[in-house]
């Protein structure tokens, strides 16, 4: 160690675990960034195998990095990779939408008559749509 750096402040070589943790964090971050980019563009692919591999791979590498021992700072990217890598596949698994097959409206059905209120709390009656071409969109919420 002699002659290297200035005594105590000398930079220790990075532990293997820490290096792995950084790689895992980068994989998780890049995959997540691309995921949210595609989500914003409404063009997430139906087949998401690549994403699942990317996320779970990052999480697994994060776990492996911790097993190989990281410095305590190096644990941060490892935990980041595990959390991101495990969380997004979870959101994918719960994103399926299920409607009741018997009650869902179908092509050829008459539009149900309904009343509602608009943004000004003014009453709205679907009868006002009669005789018009109408496009109805159901949103989950404002986002």
């Amino acid at each position: 160690m002699e002659g290297r750096g200035s005594g105590r402040a000398a930079v220790k070589p990075m532990k293997t675990g820490t290096k792995l943790a950084l790689v895992a964090a980068v994989i998780a971050a890049v995959t997540a960034r691309y995921w949210f980019y595609l989500a914003a563009e409404v063009s997430l692919p139906t087949d998401r195998t690549g994403f699942v591999i990317g996320f779970l791979g990052a999480a697994a590498l994060g776990v492996y990095a911790l097993i190989k021992r990281t410095s305590w700072l190096g644990a941060i990217p490892a935990v980041f990779a595990i959390v991101v890598g495990a969380f997004l596949p979870f959101t994918v698994s719960i994103s399926a939408q299920i409607v009741e097959r018997d009650s869902v409206i179908e092509v050829g059905d008459a539009m149900p008559q309904f009343t509602s209120i608009d943004g000004q709390r003014q009453a709205f009656d679907s009868a006002s749509l009669n005789g018009h071409l109408v496009l109805i969109k159901f949103f989950r919420a404002h986002w």
């Binding site: 399926a96 939408q97 409607v99 539009m111």
Partner: peptide
Amino acid sequence: LPVPATLLIDESGKVVWIDLSADYQRR
């Protein structure tokens, strides 16, 4: 929450087209 959906209704009040999102991350 509703399933994200888009419907087209003609002048007679009949549903002529419907698109349901099988996945809330798609529209």
